[in-house]
Simulated scan of single mutants.
Amino acid sequence: MGEAAADLISRARAGDGEAFRQLTEQYRRELHVHCYRMLGSFQDAEDVLQDTLLAAWQGFGGFEGRASLRTWLYRIATNRCLNARRSAGRRQAKEWDVPHVEPPEPTRLGEVVWLEPIPNALLEGVIDAPLDPEARYEQTESISLAFMTALQLLPPRQLAVLVLRDVLGFHAAEVADMLDASVESVKSALKRARASLHHRRPTTDDREPPPASDSPSEDAIVAKFVRAWESADLDALVALLTDDVFMSMPPMPFEYQGRDVVARFCASIFRADRRFDLIPTRANGQPAFGAYLRAPNGISHGTGLYVLTLTGDRICAMTRFENSVLPSFGLPRSLPHLPKLG
């Protein structure tokens, strides 16, 4: 530990709030992402992050430096997340509430209706950080919506162990200390979590990898999607979808699997001359769009956020979130009709 860090710790123990802020600021973003992985809800993660930092500040006199400050903060954050999972009622499923749209019968009803997207702006410096030797998942994969959904279906302690070991690369002994558990129980929980995750995650072995973020290949798919969606060109949209394309829309539990039924859902969205403007953004490391329904008065009203999952030059999943998430992405609730080129 350097002299500067030791001085900050000494000052923070003595009640210097600015010293505490300087010590913890570098970990704030990664702790936020950790809470998000644990809880699946961007809003809940924000709340627990604040609770974590308050608890760390109030208990900083007890920080003895036996573990690193980062490990100590992760211990607090993880246990605050576990408490939140135990005590808080999960977000409830919503009924279908899109006016003048009658969707097809869903393929099934989803369980993780509390899932929310996280803006890419909050992932900078986190998902591109070097992996710890113990980590098993690429950082971009470990924040994807498919991975997040599978995580949320794990029992809370298994979820915590898998994230701490396989995503963040903490050693088994460190995780055991964080959870006040034995190393053997951590290893057992990790084995069960890995098996469950493998069973629940979509099979991707025979899929092409997605194009690199912001690459010409990704840009080409995204441009085709925007043209098709904004012009309500169902044939052009369907041509972009894989045969097994998957669509979900938390907090509504409706899920659709397969190109034909997803096409029928999109047709229901486009009916009655409903036309949209799409504003690009990124969520969970994936292309995303704020969707704005054009109104006769020249204003487009935000209806939700669509996040695309790509494979090769096709779309293999679409996730629709409510318009309440738009402000988190710096997107307005409404905007003037946008002029279309060409």
Rank of each mutant, 00 (worst) to 15 (best):
Ala291Ile: 15
Gly312Ala: 04
Leu154His: 00
Gly62Trp: 07
Gln26Ser: 12
Tyr306Met: 11
Ala195Arg: 15
Phe63Gln: 04
Thr303Leu: 06
Ser248Gly: 06
Gly285Ser: 06
Glu174Met: 15
Ala84Val: 03
Lys191Pro: 05
Phe270Ala: 07
Asp235Phe: 11
Leu131Ile: 09
Gly65Val: 06
Ser215Gly: 12
Arg259Gly: 08
Leu154Trp: 00
Met247Cys: 11
Ala84Glu: 07
Pro210Thr: 08
Pro119Met: 01
Tyr306Glu: 09
Asp47Val: 11
Pro209Tyr: 11
Gly298Val: 13
Ser217Gly: 03
His337Gln: 09
Pro210Leu: 10
Leu237Arg: 03
Ser215Tyr: 13
Leu164Ile: 02
Pro210Glu: 13
Arg264Thr: 07
Val262Ile: 04
Arg207Ile: 03
Glu230His: 00
Ala56Trp: 06
Ala267Phe: 08
Gly169Lys: 12
Glu18Asn: 11
Gly89Arg: 14
Pro250Leu: 04
Pro211Met: 00
Gly258Cys: 08
Ala189His: 14
Pro216Thr: 08
Arg201Trp: 10
Pro211Gly: 01
Asp233Gln: 08
Gly298Ala: 11
Pro117Cys: 06
Gly40Tyr: 12
Trp114Val: 05
Ser300Lys: 03
Phe42Thr: 14
Asp219Glu: 12
Pro133Ala: 08
Leu179Arg: 00
Leu197Gly: 02
Ser144Phe: 12
Arg11Phe: 13
Asn83Cys: 03
Arg259Lys: 15
Thr52Asn: 03
Thr242Arg: 08
His337Cys: 04
Gln257Asn: 08
Val175Arg: 00
Arg192Glu: 11
Pro130Asp: 04
Phe329Tyr: 01
Arg165Glu: 01
Arg91Gly: 04
His34Ile: 09
Leu31Met: 07
Pro287Glu: 08
Gly302Ser: 01
Thr281Gly: 00
Ala291Lys: 14
Gly169Cys: 09
Ser217Tyr: 11
Thr309Glu: 15
Asn79Pro: 04
Pro253Gln: 08
Arg294Phe: 01
Thr140Glu: 15
Cys35Glu: 07
Asn83Ala: 11
Val113Asp: 01
Asp206Pro: 02
Pro332Glu: 01
Thr24Met: 10
Ala19Glu: 05
Tyr256Trp: 09
Arg70His: 14
Val113Gln: 01
Ser268Glu: 00
Phe246His: 09
Gln158Asp: 05
Ser87Leu: 09
Ile143Ser: 13
Ala88Asn: 12
Ala263Gly: 15
